[in-house]
């Protein structure tokens, strides 16, 4: 029973949030679009002028651009596949009756709370370092030559690090969804003679579909912005082997001081992210309403 005065109060209380988010969204975006049309290098402020879309053509034409898109896709899809598949398996494992489930949950969730640069440095130095990282020690123990992970497979290595950070999140959400499933349904299927694989495929997986959608949506938002992991491990290299779109724009802006081209890249990133977001919103909206 909302009265007119309470409606007015509601609008009043809503406005600070709406205004700051609107400003936060529109002002920088408008400025980015404006810069993207200018000749604007922070090191050479005397060269100015409106150059239409030349920043865009420069950015897109650079060989790093296409590879950065591909790298971004590999990273995001790679992490999603690893976390969802392993997340389901681990959630199924923990969901069964075990001793010390509480402690197991705490151990499994822990990587999620590790600050990204810390996680990346631990993996880079103490595990993947080819001279005295633990993986090199393990290889030595097995009589194999050590492998230079970040030198020879930089993107795969970073994907692995990021997947380690997000696997707990996926596992925990899928576990929560599993625990809300009624055991009667499973038992009924069991009595009807469905084997474990069929039970998983026809009962458990459909039940998890909503949770899986949510995992994909939320992880994608964060994964498109992966930054610190690349900064402290490979710095985008060797060459551009691990340069994602985010990192390419960063290099252009804060290392190349080329504000115009970086802004053009930023606009492209925003457009691409919005395309992804629209698809996700449609998928999630459908799944969440049901």
């Amino acid at each position: 029973m909302s009265t007119r005065s309470s409606r007015k109060a509601a609008r009043l209380m809503l406005s600070p949030s709406v205004i700051v988010l609107l400003v936060w969204m529109i002002v920088p975006l408008a400025v980015t679009v404006w810069y993207s049309l200018l000749r604007y290098n922070l090191l050479r402020p005397e060269r100015t002028g409106f150059i239409w879309f030349r920043n865009y053509t420069n950015f897109v034409a650079s060989p790093a651009f296409l590879s950065s898109i591909v790298n971004t896709l590999i990273l995001v899809v790679g992490v999603l596949v690893i976390t969802v598949v392993l997340g389901i398996l681990i959630a199924l494992l923990i969901d069964r009756p075990i001793w010390g489930q509480g402690i197991v949950r705490i151990l499994v969730i822990s990587p999620f709370f590790i600050m990204p640069p810390v996680a990346a440095l631990i993996w880079k130095n103490m595990f993947m370092n080819p001279t005295n990282g633990l993986f090199a020690e393990a290889a030595k123990f097995l009589g194999l030559p050590p492998f230079d992970f970040l030198g020879h497979a930089p993107l795969a290595s970073i994907t692995l690090m990021v997947a380690w950070q997000w696997l707990p999140f996926a596992t925990l959400i899928l576990l929560t969804a599993l625990q809300s499933m009624s055991s009667e349904q499973i038992e009924a299927a069991e009595m009807d003679g469905a084997n474990a694989l069929n039970r998983f495929w026809f009962i458990v997986l459909p039940h998890l579909s909503r949770a899986i959608t949510v995992v994909i949506l939320i992880q994608t938002i964060f994964l498109l912005g992966v930054f610190a992991e690349i900064l402290v491990t490979t710095n985008g290299g060797p060459g551009t082997a691990s340069t994602t779109l985010t990192f390419l724009i960063y290099k252009e802006a804060l290392l190349g001081f080329n504000a115009g081209t970086a802004a053009a890249g930023g606009v492209i990133a925003v457009i691409l992210a919005n395309i992804v977001a629209i698809f996700l919103m449609i998928a999630v909206g459908r799944n969440l309403d049901a």
Partner: peptide, 14 residues
């Protein structure tokens, strides 16, 4: 959903 890097330049300059 808006990538932070998209607005890095103006935020930095502002």
């Amino acid at each position: 959903m808006m990538p932070a890097v998209g607005v890095l330049v103006p935020i930095y300059l502002i």
